[in-house]
Design a protein around this nucleic acid. Sequence first.
DNA 1: GTCATCATGTAAGCCGTTACATGATTGC
DNA 2: GCAATCATGTAACGGCTTACATGATGAC
Lengths: 222, 222
Amino acid sequence: MDLAILGLLTSDDMHGYELKKRLGELPGTGIHVSFGSLYPALARLERAGSVIAVKPTGSIRPTTPMTGALSGELAAFKSRVLPTTAASTVQPDMRGRRAKKVYRITDPGRSRLQGLLLDDVDDERSFHLRVAFAMQLEPDQRTAIFKTRRRQLHDQLEAARGRAASPATNPYLRLLEEHDLTTLDRNIAWIDMLIATPSDGHGAVSNDIPDALNTITGGTSK
Amino acid sequence: MDLAILGLLTSDDMHGYELKKRLGELPGTGIHVSFGSLYPALARLERAGSVIAVKPTGSIRPTTPMTGALSGELAAFKSRVLPTTAASTVQPDMRGRRAKKVYRITDPGRSRLQGLLLDDVDDERSFHLRVAFAMQLEPDQRTAIFKTRRRQLHDQLEAARGRAASPATNPYLRLLEEHDLTTLDRNIAWIDMLIATPSDGHGAVSNDIPDALNTITGGTSK
DNA sequence: GTCATCATGTAAGCCGTTACATGATTGC
DNA sequence: GCAATCATGTAACGGCTTACATGATGAC
């Protein structure tokens, strides 16, 4: 949750309502966060200094480095916060709708994001989140995460293959079993592609999965 | 959770510890139920009359390790248990002694299972559970569930396609987007196969279909 | 001037987890 | 007899959801 928020705020300042929308639009997952968890999370992140609220005075991205201590940074931001004036409401739709509370990630927040990205991945959703924000990581960290996830899936596949040896009791269970196996295989191949993709994006293309990579998984019968 | 327990107990009488193992072996999902939720759930189901505890006949227990042929062993185990009647209820916890509690689903429990299976499906996991226990449903109910899920995925796919129109900001986000689209497409095709599969299991064979459907990203007709 | 939408928040509660505590069985 | 595993439970806690409560803004 925190990961998703901080990851999205890396690209743009946003208020809670919009954050929720963007969260739901993240591919690969069916993340639908409710306001009841989103707003408390934002409040918590703000208290922790990972994000700050800026008034929507026309969101000019700061070009100043902001490499100070937390308190210094907060003070700096507070000093540039401007009160909402009649002038700012004169242009209603020029910069999007007027938001009550627009959040911006801080340098400590960026560190927090780094840490969260390096946390153990347990399920598909959290891995997809890591992929979505993979650009925030160093190439070798990225690769390490991909490989760790690859091993997880590989182990699951081994286990599933072992189970699949015994005959399934009914047709739907059998289809589910097969679907599981091919899905695992496919996801492993996808991760191999991720690993082979350089950050500049000029590497492998999705339709071009090398056969060489498939054999690493143990060669799923096709 | 209740669904998974009742579904598994439909095939075999089981005690909690084993239930947990079998739950983890269900294909298509990474269901890892903890004891802390499993045992209270069993107690609740027992209070509700959905399951009853049956006692092992005593002397002989299966001493062979659980690795290997599960069904045969379970059948052998099952033959050694007797239902516990109200009058002859043995209370193993008298004087603080603990005993294995083998649970068996009741007729009310089977009704409960039916109801749970017909509940709204929200995510992948719960749909996979429905597929795993699809044989407990009438063919038309089964088909209705499949089609409902198909429509969900179809809508998601439409939405994802709309989003994919705008250019992805970085290579990993783009790959994630593509993976999402093809995954949705593939899962829809799988559901089509489920719909086309009769309960006797002599219909479509999974190996016939996936290769043809795998590469398509844009062609979910129907 | 009122309705839909945008926008933020709080409270109660469900569902599951980890950590803890205990007892029974098997193998050596 | 002692360790490892099998087996059952309880307690504390955490994350997320639904339902509730409130207010601002723009369209008509």
